[in-house]
Design a protein around this nucleic acid. Sequence first.
DNA 1: GCACATAGTCCGAAGTTCGGACTAATGTGA
DNA 2: TCACATTAGTCCGAACTTCGGACTATGTGC
Lengths: 154, 154
Amino acid sequence: MCKTAGVSTDDASPLNLGLLLFIPYRAMETAVLDALAEAGHDLPLNQARVFQRIAPEGSRLAQLAQASQLPKQTVGSIVDHLERSGYVRRIPDPTDARARLVTITPRGQELVEISLPVVRATEAAWRAHLGEQRTVLLRDALADLREITDPFRP
Amino acid sequence: MCKTAGVSTDDASPLNLGLLLFIPYRAMETAVLDALAEAGHDLPLNQARVFQRIAPEGSRLAQLAQASQLPKQTVGSIVDHLERSGYVRRIPDPTDARARLVTITPRGQELVEISLPVVRATEAAWRAHLGEQRTVLLRDALADLREITDPFRP
DNA sequence: GCACATAGTCCGAAGTTCGGACTAATGTGA
DNA sequence: TCACATTAGTCCGAACTTCGGACTATGTGC
């Protein structure tokens, strides 16, 4: 299966940029999830994806919903699980009594601390493969692309 | 939410490469799905992701399962839906009587034909934003990265 | 030809998603 | 200052999805 049917750019060319982006993304995600599982944290994908979006100072549910492009209820239920597993806590938002901030607990912080070296190692492996200069170019291009593709830039 | 908690490369730096890859990927996916919905094809994400992996000459279930990193049963059920909606058909694999090939029907081909210009337009928008040269570098870097990150290269 | 691997399906329990309807707190403007 | 619209989040529950286990049919190697 070299060419995809659905979204290949054209018959003769290789994969479209979308899938080309997805492949390494998925690899990074898998590496992190595997490392977490190894450390005894069995985080399902949906929980990981929401967790990842929590800002260090805490995030509101609606923010998380927007960032992960899921309805509030869905994110609510995912946060319930994260909370039950002790990774996050909901605290009242001091600036708005309707809202609550989803914050990372010390146990949740463990997840971050396990992930970080894996992310760094994966990036290092990529850098070793691509070379320093191209890695910088890649990151720059992606950061630039974010300007026109991120529906949720604060 | 500027920095993500889970996987930021380091406190001062911007997003990690993983999320940086994901953002444009998701944008592309959304653009395609929106266009399909507009044309009356309400394809859920999971179906779209599997459909996208079907090779023009047809793919086996096990291949699709491996490529999308889902169990056979899950992919089987997704293919059931695609089949019920008339986008794909299962035909016997002439080379192996146990296997069947999931192939794209004319109606499924419509999906491809709707997606293609959207993919091209999105890529063109990105090119306009990044410039010709950086786009080429981006694609090259990603294609290279695929060599070490694609668990399923034929 | 017999054992073993492989393709795919069926079953069903457990889990996930998310529309709609709701409560509570905020902001707004007359 | 009070109605009124808006926004944060939750509760409910039906429909759907996921996927382990067990199964059949075919291929493959000894």
